[in-house]
């Protein structure tokens, strides 16, 4: 049974070394920060790839919730609903999921 607040995380190729090669993982979390905490708990080391020492999303990392960049919402504090899709993409010349 998936957790009640589980979201789907789309993992880009360069981070799949942490997820055992998985491109899509399901973790709990009511905010982007909580999802990142859950990812770090399950895949140690992945968290520091996503956030800097102050807990902010690193400048080159774009995080999309259902296709919308969380920088345009509330950043790491952006709230999530169960079943949401959270995509992580290195910010190559800006970018949105196709």
């Amino acid at each position: 049974m998936p957790e009640s607040d589980a979201v789907n995380v789309l993992v880009p190729t360069p981070l799949r070394s942490f997820t055992g090669g998985e491109g899509r993982v399901v973790v709990p979390g009511g905010t982007v920060a909580e999802v990142f905490d859950a990812l770090e708990a399950r895949y140690p080391g992945i968290g520091e790839r996503l956030r800097d020492d102050s807990g902010q999303i690193r400048r080159f990392v774009n995080v999309f919730v259902n296709g919308r960049n969380v920088r345009e919402i509330d950043g790491a504090a952006t709230t999530l609903s169960p079943g949401d899709e959270l995509g992580i993409i290195p910010a190559m010349a800006g970018g949105t999921p196709a």
């Binding site: 774009n62 993409i89 290195p90 910010a91 190559m92 010349a93 800006g94 970018g95 949105t96 999921p97 196709a98």
Partner: peptide
């Protein structure tokens, strides 16, 4: 081009 390319690109 990777789909993450920017709109300007």
């Amino acid at each position: 081009v990777p789909g993450s390319a920017s709109e300007e690109r």
